[in-house]
């Protein structure tokens, strides 16, 4: 069972990374326009070069 000493911190760390990523998306207003974002990805307007 010694492996638990590694596995538990690792699983917590990975989960924590997911949590931090979610908190980051919330704090940077990424849920303000879910409908628009789902449509924008279909547009090929800025496919060749990024929006200036």
């Amino acid at each position: 069972m010694d492996v638990l000493v590694w596995l538990i911190p690792v699983s917590l760390l990975l989960g924590g990374v997911g949590l931090l990523a979610f908190l980051w998306t919330v704090r940077t207003n990424q849920y303000d326009d879910p409908e628009g974002d789902s449509q924008r990805i279909l547009s090929d307007e800025w496919d060749d070069h990024p929006k200036p």
Binding site: D32, D33, G36
Partner: peptide, 11 residues
Amino acid sequence: GVHEARVNLTL
């Protein structure tokens, strides 16, 4: 004179 225009489809 317009510098930036952004549409929010949800709202």
